[in-house]
Design a protein around this nucleic acid. Sequence first.
RNA 1: GCCCAGGUAGCUCAGUCGGUAGAGCAACGCACUCGUAAUGCGUAGGUCAGGAGUUCGAUUCUCCUCUUGGGCUCCA
Length: 670
Amino acid sequence: MTEILITLPDGSQRSFAAGSTAGDVAASIGSRLAKAAVAAVVNGDEADLTTPLLNGATVAIITGDSDEGRHVLRHSTSHVMAQAVLQLFPGAKYSIGPAITDGFYYDFELPASKTFSEDDLVLVEARMRQIMSANQPFIRSEMSIDDALALFADQPYKCEIIERVRALAGVVIDPDDEEVSVDAGEVDPDGTVSVYRNTDEFVDMCRGPHVPTTSRLGHFKLMKVAGAYWRGNEKGPMLQRIYGTAWDTKAALEEHLHRLEEAEKRDHRKLATELDLLSFPSELGGGLAVWHPKGAIVRKHMEDYSRDRHENGGYQFVFTPHLANANLFQTSGHLDFYKDGMYPPMEMDNGTYYMKPMNCPMHCLIFRSRQRSYRELPLRLFELGTVYRYERAGTLHGLMRIRGFTQDDSHIYCTEEQLQDEIASLLDFVLSVLRAFGFHDFTANLSTRDPKKSVGSDEIWDKATEALREGLHRHGLQYKVKHGDAAFYGPKIDIDVKDAIGRTWQLSTIQCDFNLPDRFNLEYVGADNNRHQPIMLHRALFGSVERFFGVLLEHYAGAFPTWLAPVQVRILPVATAHEEYAQAQVAALRAAGFRVDVIEANDQLGKRIRAAKLDKIPYVLVVGDDDVADNTFGVNPRGGEVERGVSVATFIERLAADVEQGSAGLTPVV
RNA sequence: GCCCAGGUAGCUCAGUCGGUAGAGCAACGCACUCGUAAUGCGUAGGUCAGGAGUUCGAUUCUCCUCUUGGGCUCCA
């Protein structure tokens, strides 16, 4: 047969000469498509453009501007990086180099335990560009496992991957098992190993597909070097990882780099310093913050709002101490399971004390302090409880990962029958509060039982998991199931929010607990006059106040909405003669409950306006002769146009409306 | 905890091939009194993260500790 028939995605069919490739198909459709093509989908499987097609194949072209296409570009770029590193560092061992979000990485072991320096990145990148200019082909071949072991005989990491695949041959691969699927991405699970060769010297094991030649690549940048454990195993060898980003066009690459710059500008640690909100004095020790007046006032309003909502939402407030006798954490099990996360013990003459890493044990004591009736349930205890956890040094990150923090912590005790409704109304409550802080895009994760480590009966796990799932369905909330990701004591829902620049943050959790009620022997007397064990729910909404503050800071890029802004209004008298008027207005606005300050006319007006803008103050009011005469303001709103001659009454009305709108969620929902 | 890179004035940074440091902004003072994003001049401000070592001499070189950043791992 000299002709083959190919079906295209739109259902149309075309005939090609035998031996034609997906690349030929793309070229026959159009030169623009041929240029954009990076790989193809042949009969449902991704394949190289250079693979000869068989008669009757269905072919779709993957272009570089699709997710799949970028994945191919990134993966191919990582191969080029491996080749460059092996040239520049003879004797280097290469392990794996997958495509990841926005880019790729590759892990190496350098000879004599050498490490990469920042300067090496420049060298590697230059060598990569040479390889790309050389227009090397990606040539695929397949071989047996034994041949592959021979080919990679001096590459121990490659051999380890091949051996693992051999061991797994015939085993159905669970896509949730990340460790195995990484290998599966490198090698076909059917017993053959595919490799891609660029030159006589450089060949890499890979399932593909790849771009036809290295000249198809080029819009990339190496970003950073890092250490990374082989197979993520803390006890295993530490490899040297290089991260890069790669895109289909120069514009896309530049846009990505620009996005990174923007994200850096709104880094909460930077903004916290610039706006004088809080700091991390090294004298305190790592992961501990002090809140300056401007940060504290924002935090106070966040907490006030949270308290109002909880008060209206049927919660009862409690307070508990920051430390407790070891007996408490023995009972709760924290000393058995969580000791590494706790600050070390304080030996006192009447026992051993620990800083509390969690509030739950103390809330359980409150539940247990007297006999409880089913009529009291659900019992919702709420506390802004400060806890201390000895997070490992390398994991600290500004406010996002901190050692002393305050949870907006709630523990809800209810009956099995109440669980369903309670979870549904909890979700209502959580989302409603998050919306008040400017978040509108939510997704959820449902973490289910890990049978290898869990307490509680099958029945209760099933029931609780269903209750969580049903709650999510009622909300139409998009969610993913994380199989086996639950803690040993119960299933949970995590809620992720998307921020102003599209990043997601995990904030709230709703977590069932079958363990603590048992350990603390919690009971209530039911309608049947018998004793029953309540179900316990942990629920944090902000997660931690500190972390939530950090997320808000990044979300708003420091420009807090008026109801939260540390200074809502700044009045600038044009000249000294207007200061009296300015002071009188400050007094009036403060009396009306607004946060207002004034900067006297010692500096030029333009300079004071600039300073106010850099402070991201919502309203800058300029007052001069006209305003004194007419009882008006010149209003310069954040992000808006200057308006002269606004009457004081009108401005106060607008300001009040702005504040009201920002905290609109204050109206009770229950 | 592990790998890499840092820590110099309140902030952002420069500098010292080993001879105890400098800029801009901020602060303070004086002059300017100004209508919407940087007025001018001046003053003050640093045990160069901390400790030990090498050296005639260490902010600079070495080691340790603390701490920060990027990752890994961890986050019952």
